[in-house]
């Protein structure tokens, strides 16, 4: 539990998927969709969340060779949401501020594209340490814009 955003957050269900190869991207997308459908998220909300998950898991495979994704259904202030945590033990990001700038490594390359991904979710947090790895947590609420 945490006290962010005024209310306590409760985890209603939790599941972990190991990511080691590119086929795992499809498995993850399907699991995220299941959870989003289960809590009654709109089609647009589902599409945004699954796309964000797809971007983040690709980064994980590309830069860290894989990692772990924790999928949770969470409840805060009587609203349900899907929280996804992408944890890897890759090289880490030296300058997070730079990586979060629009136009940094996006477009045609298979770049990080973190600012775009952030726009697809309601909450986005990133922790990274060079040589240790990166952890990115995102939440999309059932009724999120």
């Amino acid at each position: 539990m945490s006290g962010k955003g005024g209310g306590f957050m409760v985890t209603l269900s939790k599941d972990i998927i190991e990511i080691t190869r590119e086929q795992d991207v499809v498995t993850l997308r399907n699991r995220v969709k299941e959870l989003a459908v289960k809590i009654g998220m709109s089609l647009l909300g589902q599409t945004k969340l699954i796309t964000a998950a797809s971007e983040l898991v690709r980064n994980m495979l590309r830069y860290a060779g894989g990692g772990k994704v924790t999928l949770e259904v969470v409840l805060r202030d009587k609203v349900t949401g899907v929280q996804l945590t992408f944890a890897d033990e890759g090289p880490g990001i030296a300058d997070i501020r730079l990586a979060m700038q629009d136009g940094y490594s996006t477009g045609k390359s298979l770049g990080l594209g973190l600012p775009g991904t952030k726009r697809l979710v309601n909450e986005f947090s990133i922790q990274s340490e060079v040589g240790k790895g990166t952890t990115i947590t995102v939440i999309r609420w059932k009724n999120g814009l």
């Binding site: 647009l44 599409t47 945004k48 796309t51 971007e55 991904t117 726009r119 697809l120």
Partner: peptide, 14 residues
């Protein structure tokens, strides 16, 4: 292209 896919693409920046 499905509408939800189009909206998502634009927000993503593609």
């Amino acid at each position: 292209m499905q509408p939800a896919v189009a909206i998502t693409l634009v927000e993503l920046g593609l």
